[in-house]
Amino acid sequence: MPNPPEESLTTRGLAARVGYSVQQVRDLERLGVIPPAVRAANGYRQFGASHLTALRVYRAMAAALGPVPARALVPGLVAGTVAEAAERIDVLHAELAAERARVKEALRALDVALAEADEVFTAEDALSIGELAQALGVRPSALRHWEREGLVRPVRTPTTAASRTYGATAITEARIVAALRAGGYGIPAISVLIERVRARSGPAEVRDVLAARLADLTRRSVALLAAAGHVHDLLVDRTDAAPAD
């Protein structure tokens, strides 16, 4: 029994299926997010099931990653091989897992920094720039950069302006900055939070910021699982269409 003819959709009909505008569909076709449309004799675009599947993949990926990363990713899924598409999806899951691990480590580092800030601190406990960099797992140049940005305030030895000593406050600040940098935060955002920490109003807020980042990663992971169903449809269609060996 012959297969039923594939449904033909106009640009407007395809847009309506996924809740996009006609212009959005045209833009996504131009960017390679969906395959090129077939042109009818009258010049109008005609779309089919493969276009609808690709558009659903993009919509789901945009929910998981954001529109800009999705526009960069989906053309490769549409035009590449099945093996390439599967590898890219594996990388996405690994990237989310790695970022989640960094944020969790940032939360642990923040808790340690705040707990140790209350301990009795003597001059003998002060650290040099090399010692603190080693303790934080960063380069000394990172500590110098944070100092220039006003994030960390070491004490300068009077005998030489090049010598820095990190006391309790500076060590705590450096640990918080390292925690936030590990969580993916930029210098401007960290500067605001450090000022709040110095005003005794910020540690809980810093923790809330990192917790919110962790919650967003969970949301993205779940959204990526939802997208996987549409990606599966895309790859199965391509596998079915591939010639047998």
Rank of each mutant, 00 (worst) to 15 (best):
L65H: 08
P69T: 01
A133Q: 04
P35K: 01
D90S: 14
H51M: 09
A54L: 03
S21D: 07
E6W: 01
F47P: 12
E131W: 07
S8I: 08
V82A: 12
L132H: 02
G43M: 04
H51P: 12
E6K: 13
A86P: 08
P140T: 09
F47M: 07
Q23T: 14
L132Y: 01
L52M: 03
E147Y: 06
A135Y: 04
L136N: 08
T53C: 10
A97W: 01
A135W: 01
R59V: 05
E7N: 07
P5M: 03
V74T: 02
A64E: 03
R108K: 11
L107N: 03
A123N: 00
L73N: 03
A79I: 05
N42A: 03
L96E: 09
A115M: 11
R144I: 09
A37P: 08
V74A: 02
V112Q: 10
R139K: 04
V91S: 08
A64F: 00
E7V: 12
A123T: 00
P5T: 09
H145I: 01
G137A: 11
E6M: 08
A115I: 08
G43R: 06
R30S: 14
R71D: 13
R39W: 02
S8H: 05
F47E: 01
A101G: 09
L136K: 05
S21N: 13
R139T: 11
V74L: 01
E124Y: 06
V22M: 05
A63E: 13
V18H: 00
Q134K: 15
G48N: 10
T81A: 15
V33L: 06
S141N: 12
V103T: 00
A37C: 14
R108D: 13
A63V: 05
R139L: 07
A72C: 09
R12S: 15
G80N: 02
R88H: 07
R56D: 02
A41G: 15
V22T: 15
V22Q: 14
R39F: 06
N3T: 10
L107T: 05
P5D: 11
A101C: 07
L14R: 14
A133M: 05
A126P: 02
L73D: 03
S128R: 08
P4T: 13
E99P: 09
V103M: 02
V138H: 04
A37Q: 05
A64R: 02
A117N: 12
E99M: 08
L132K: 03
G80I: 00
P69M: 00
E116C: 05
